[in-house]
Design a protein around this nucleic acid. Structure first.
Length: 503
RNA sequence: GCGCCCUUCGUCUAGCGGUCUAGGACAUCGCCCUUUCACGGCGGUAACACGGGUUCGAGUCCCGUAGGGCGCGCCA
């Protein structure tokens, strides 16, 4: 028999399920602890779980790991639900709150105790801290030394409430067949007796996760590989309880651009921050799915495509670095791909999340909406984010006389202003007023003057938009309309006569 | 300190022992298009961390080294 591949990815439990004689329904879960926002790494984990379940007709549950009463907040729960919703990741059923299930967790601990797979530990936190300190000083392992493992409970110091610890195997090895990491082996002497129930009777994370995943029928645990060591300890709890272990898939973490831990400066922001930066959910999903996972050379995935293509064997084992430039490029792609009306709707949705959003929303009259829509085809060509689209539309939003930026101002020399006066007269005769008719007029004007088109177009752009870059100048003319265009040109042309530039 | 994981262009990755003079995408550089900025088109620079094995043959398998990451709580 040939030696088994070191990466048995997924085959293990499939075989187990098939042996049970029925088709296994895939159940995944996303289990954030509500101690902060939904960060980008969590969003990717949720995405992977969602894609895996959706691609197999399975379910993805959301479990809020709120057993840490001190640090869990409602605001964080809201932020996580809001983030997932915005990203378009829909969980099945109602969110499950772990804290509410503590009675069941306690029951499992009692079961372990009754079976002799757990014991009461009367060591105080101070005592344990001392033990670790001594271990550190002597260069020994900081693991719990099992001092109460075989001790007679009658020796328990009076008044000390015990914690319940798992009686983990002392010898042999604990093995995880991970769908991403392959076969990972721990010598049991490197794993200690973890706490199942705290001395106040509340369950620890390690116990709660195992019990919940089992009770929820979770078949595939897809999570960050910061949990890989936990997987070994959880395996021991599964064994103690006599339960089968779900398929595990520990995905590498996302790092910052320098390879270190992802910091806020690097993109470890809540997904709400990405929304406020003008990224589209579809773009973020596409970017995230390609971080650590690939499907040949394919870069662009519709939601349907990624659901169909996503699978565990194509997940890499090395951590990926977060790269804003690629996200931007992808976002630009999705913006260009969007229908004009959808884009405007997306902008209106993001307005409440922007600093000057209310101000902008107030300006969105039906007429302005029409103009914006008309300008959208050329606006989206030039934008990487929704913020860019908004910025590109500033010339529509600002009233006369428009403010010129420095470059535009420098461009409007006395000569240029004179030229504007002349071209204004030309444009005044144009009717009907369209991009085509204005272009014809301006081109023929430039030709007669023996000037390059740019020599006329740039001053026009400055006068019309207040900037030196903008959508095509004839589109600007058309969108602005004849009256507004001529007025803006006149604003600059006449100011030349009234206020000759000094110096 | 102990345990576990990782290492292909700057970045995301393809590659599952010969088809690799290592492919794609982003970024970058150049050219073209052009009224600006973009978009688009064409082209260029650029990588198998290092050292040993195994093999007729290694980016692909094994072992070291170096570097990076994660974990080691009565946190999750």
């Amino acid at each position: 028999m040939p030696p088994p591949s070191p990466r048995l990815r997924g085959e293990v439990s499939c075989a187990a399920a098939c042996a049970r004689g029925h088709v296994m329904t895939v159940v995944t879960r996303f289990a954030p602890s509500p101690t902060g926002f939904l960060h980008i790494g969590g969003a990717r984990t949720a995405l992977f779980n969602w894609l895996y379940a959706r691609g197999r007709g399975g379910k993805m549950f959301l479990r809020v790991e709120d057993t840490d009463r001190e640090r869990s907040t409602q605001a964080a729960i809201d932020a996580i639900l809001d983030g997932l919703t915005w990203l378009g990741i829909a969980w099945d059923g109602e969110p499950i709150y772990q804290f509410a299930r503590s009675a069941r967790h306690r029951e499992a601990a009692e079961q372990l105790l009754a079976a002799g797979r757990a014991y009461r530990c009367y060591a105080t936190p101070e005592e344990l801290a001392q033990m670790r300190e001594a271990a550190r000083r002597e260069g020994r392992s900081k693991l719990y030394d099992g001092r109460w493992r075989d001790r007679d409970p009658r020796e328990a110091p009076p008044g000390v409430k015990p914690a319940i610890r798992l009686k983990a195997p002392l010898t042999g090895e604990t093995v995880i067949e991970d769908a991403v990491q392959g076969r990972v082996v721990w010598q049991n002497e490197n794993l200690d007796d973890l706490v199942l129930l705290r001395s106040d009777g509340t369950p620890t994370y390690m116990l709660a996760v195992v019990v919940d995943d089992h009770d929820m029928g979770v078949t595939h645990i897809i999570r960050g590989d910061d949990h890989l060591t936990n997987a070994a300890r959880q395996k021991q709890i599964y064994d103690g309880l006599g339960w089968s272990v779900p398929v595990m898939a520990h995905i590498p973490l996302i790092h910052g651009p320098d390879g270190s831990k992802l910091s806020k400066r690097h993109g470890a922001l809540g997904v709400d921050a990405y929304r406020a930066m003008g990224y589209l959910p579809a773009a973020l999903r596409n970017y995230l799915v390609r971080l650590g996972w690939s499907h040949g050379d394919q870069e662009i995935f519709s939601t349907q495509e990624m659901i169909a293509a996503f699978d565990l064997p194509q997940i890499g084992r090395s951590p990926a670095r977060f790269d804003f430039a690629k996200l931007e490029n992808l976002n630009g792609h999705y913006i260009r791909q969007s229908a004009d009306a959808d884009l405007l709707a997306a902008i209106e949705r993001v307005l409440p999340h922007l600093a000057d959003g209310a101000e902008l929303a107030a300006k969105l009259t039906p007429q302005l909406r029409q103009q914006w829509l008309a300008a959208m085809p050329s606006l989206k060509e030039r934008a990487k984010t929704l913020l860019d689209v908004i910025d590109g539309a500033r010339f529509l939003l600002s009233g006369r006389p428009i403010r010129l930026d420095d470059k535009a101002d420098a461009l409007l020399t006395p000569d240029a202003k004179a030229l504007l006066g002349a071209v204004a007269a030309e444009l005044d005769a144009v009717d009907p007023w369209t991009a085509e008719t204005t272009e014809r007029a301006v081109r023929s004007f430039a030709e007669r003057k023996g000037a390059k088109l740019g020599a006329v177009a740039q001053p026009l752009r400055a006068a019309l938009t207040g900037r030196t870059t903008s959508p095509g100048i004839f589109e600007v003319l058309a969108v602005l309309g004849k009256a507004e265009s001529l007025a803006r040109v006149a604003d600059q042309a006449t100011s030349a006569k009234l206020e000759p530039r000094v110096g």
